[in-house]
Design a protein around this nucleic acid. Structure first.
Length: 486
RNA sequence: GCUGCUAUAGUGUAGUCCGGCCAAUCAUGCGGGCCUUUCACGCCCGCGACUGGGGUUCGAAUCCCCAUAGCAGCACCA
C-alpha cells in the first residue's frame, strides 16, 4: 500500500523495460569504421551496453565495413580504443568484411527461395518504375536465370554499375522506400583495405544476416533506421527468421559541434582542426583530452534515454555529470592568467600553505614561498580595485597612480578582507612558477601555474577560480592544459 | 511529391499505454541566500513547460480529429 504510493512519485532512474528481455539479451553495437567514435555513437553504444548489463547476455561489437568507400583503415583501431575508453562490456567482436562468404551463401539461398532477383536495369529507369509501382523485367525472370546472373556477379562477368541484387518486397507499398530495395552491388574501386572482393552486400542485407546469425534479440538504434527496420522485415520474412525487438531513439544534435565524420575529416585535412582529438570536436577522444570522464558521458547519455523525440544534447548536462566525478578527486592549484608582476611593499617573507583539496585535509598542502614579488591575474587589477587578498597569504592594498598600480602589505586579517569585500585571488611567487598555456574552446590563455602541476600530468585538476583543466603535456618545464569546464 | 515518426520549462527527463492521486517529476541552467581563505563543492529559497484549435467526458498532459512545427526515409551509404 505504502509502496504503491512511493512508487508513484519516485521517478525511475532506469531505462524502460525491453519487451522479451527477461531471460537475457543479445545486443550489438555496429559502427562503420570511417573514423573515431563521437558522442552520437556513444549514445547507441552506451544504451545497448546498459541493457545488456541490466538483463545479462552478450554484447557484440560488429564492425560494418561493407562499403570500401567509407572505410578508414585507421578507424578499426580507433573504434576499439574508443570502446575501451567508454568501458563497454563487449563480449565478442565480428568484422563484416571477414564474413562475405556467409552473405554470398545466404544471398544464393534467398534467390532460390524467390525472395530476391538480380536486376540489370538502368538505375534511373528502375527508379521511375518504382515510383509508378511497376515491376521491372528482371523481377519475374526464373530462379535459374537469377542464379546464373548471381554467379556472373561473383565471377566478375558483370562490372560495377551493371547489376544489383534486389529484395522482392511489395511494389504497391505506399512508401516508395520499401519497394524492391537493393541488397548487393558490385564495386570495382576502391579496393577494400581488408579483403579482396568486388561483390558487396548493402547494409540491409548484411545487418539482417548477422543479426540472425549472431542471435541478436534486441536492437536499439536511431530513428533514421526506422525505414531500414521495415525493409529488413521483408528479408526476415523471406527466410522465415525471427525478428528482433527494435527501439528507435530520436535524432540528437549537439550544440556547437559537427558530428559528421566526413566534415570533421575535411576540417582536419584543411588544418582547421589539429586532429581527431581537437578539443573543439565532439569525438570521444576530444572529450577525453579535455578531461571528460567516460562515466560522465555514460551518465549523460543514459539520462537522455531512448526517447524518440529529436533532442539537442546540452554540454551543461554533461559538464554537470563530469563535475560530480571530477570535483572530489581534482587537486587544487593556482593558475594566473595573463600575469602581471607585482612587488609588494612592506611585506616580510611568508610561507603559504594552501590545501590540495578544500574538503580533504588529509591530502596535505602545497607550499608557496612569498619573498617579495608575485604574479597576479592582470585582468582583475582594474583601477576600481583597491584591495585584494592573496589566497592563503595576506591582504594587499592597491594604490593607483593613473593606470599604474602600487602594491603594499595590508595585514593578515581575513576578516579585514571580508569587511572590505576584497576578492580573494590566486597568485604565484615570481621566483617559483612555470609557464602554463591553457587551451580553451574559445582560444588560448597564456599564464603561469605552480611548479607542482607538472606532477599532475594526465590528471584533471582545478585551477582555483578558473575551472577544471586537464594537464595535457609538459614540455621543457612548460605546462599545457586543456580547459574542461567551470 | 510520397511514406512514416515525434511534440512537457533554456536544455534533458518523468508522467501519456490503463483519463481523476498532475495547480505536472527529477536533473541541469538561471536568480537570490547560507557555508567557505576558489567565481569549486555542499545546503536553502525562487524562476520556468503540457505546440495550437476543436471534440469525447462529470473530469484530458493523458483518448479522437484537424492544424502547425521538427525530424527521418524514398542511395548500387551505414
Amino acid at each position: 500500500m505504502y509502496e504503491a504510493l512511493f512508487e508513484k512519485h519516485e521517478h525511475r532512474k532506469v531505462l524502460p523495460d525491453l519487451e522479451g528481455a527477461k531471460n537475457g539479451v543479445v545486443m550489438r553495437f555496429a559502427p562503420n569504421p570511417s573514423g573515431p567514435l563521437h558522442i552520437g555513437h556513444a549514445r547507441a553504444a552506451v544504451l545497448n551496453d546498459a541493457y545488456v548489463k541490466q538483463y545479462g547476455g552478450r554484447y557484440i561489437l560488429r564492425i560494418e565495413d561493407t562499403d570500401p568507400k567509407r572505410v578508414d583503415p585507421e578507424a578499426y583501431e580507433m573504434v576499439k580504443e574508443d570502446i575501451a575508453w567508454l568501458g563497454l562490456g563487449i563480449t565478442e567482436t565480428v568484422t563484416q568484411s571477414d564474413r562475405l562468404p556467409l552473405y554470398y551463401d545466404l544471398c544464393r539461398q534467398l534467390i532460390e527461395r524467390g525472395g530476391a532477383y538480380v536486376c540489370t536495369c538502368n538505375n534511373e529507369h528502375f527508379k521511375e518504375l518504382k515510383q509508378v509501382k511497376t515491376a521491372c523485367p528482371c523481377r519475374d525472370q526464373p530462379v535459374e536465370k537469377n542464379i546464373r546472373r548471381w554467379e556472373q556477379m561473383l565471377d566478375h562477368t558483370f562490372k560495377e554499375g551493371e547489376v544489383t541484387v534486389r529484395i522482392k518486397t511489395d511494389l504497391t507499398h505506399p512508401d516508395p522506400a520499401m519497394r524492391d530495395f537493393p541488397a548487393f552491388r558490385i564495386l570495382d574501386t576502391p579496393s577494400h583495405p581488408k579483403v579482396k572482393a568486388h561483390v558487396y552486400p548493402l547494409m540491409n542485407f548484411s545487418v539482417v544476416a548477422d543479426d540472425h546469425l549472431l542471435g541478436v534479440t534486441h536492437v536499439i538504434r536511431g530513428k533514421d533506421h526506422i525505414a531500414n527496420t521495415r525493409r529488413q522485415r521483408y528479408i526476415y520474412d523471406h527466410f522465415g527468421w525471427k525478428v528482433p525487438v527494435y527501439r528507435h531513439y530520436g535524432r540528437m544534435g549537439i550544440e556547437g559541434v559537427v558530428l559528421s565524420t566526413s566534415q570533421m575529416r575535411l576540417g582536419i585535412n584543411k588544418g582547421m582542426y589539429t586532429g581527431w582529438d581537437d578539443i573543439r570536436l565532439g569525438t570521444l577522444r576530444a572529450l577525453a583530452r579535455r578531461g571528460i570522464s567516460p562515466d560522465a558521458v555514460r551518465k549523460a547519455v543514459l539520462a537522455i534515454g531512448i526517447g524518440d523525440t529529436d533532442i539537442s544534447f546540452s554540454w551543461d548536462n554533461l559538464y554537470a555529470e563530469n563535475k560530480k566525478i571530477v570535483d572530489p578527486v581534482a587537486n587544487r592549484y593556482f593558475f594566473v592568467p595573463e600575469p602581471v608582476t607585482a612587488q609588494i611593499d612592506g611585506a616580510k617573507p611568508h610561507t603559504a600553505q594552501a590545501m590540495l583539496h578544500p574538503s580533504d585535509a588529509s591530502r596535505g598542502t602545497r607550499t608557496l614561498v612569498f619573498e617579495r614579488t608575485v604574479l597576479l591575474p592582470g585582468r582583475e587589477l582594474t583601477p576600481d580595485v583597491t584591495m585584494v587578498r592573496l589566497k592563503d597569504l595576506f591582504n594587499v592594498k592597491i594604490t593607483w597612480n593613473g593606470s599604474i598600480p602600487a602594491f603594499s602589505y595590508a595585514g593578515e586579517s581575513l576578516a579585514d578582507a571580508r569587511a572590505a569585500k576584497a576578492h580573494i585571488i590566486q597568485w604565484l611567487p615570481a621566483q617559483d612558477s612555470v609557464d602554463c598555456t591553457l587551451l580553451t574552446q574559445q582560444g588560448v590563455i597564456a599564464g603561469a601555474c605552480e611548479p607542482r602541476v607538472i606532477n599532475e600530468l594526465g590528471n584533471v585538476v582545478q585551477f582555483e577560480r578558473i575551472g577544471f583543466v586537464k594537464i595535457d603535456s609538459v614540455d621543457n618545464g612548460r605546462v599545457t592544459a586543456y580547459f574542461t569546464h567551470k
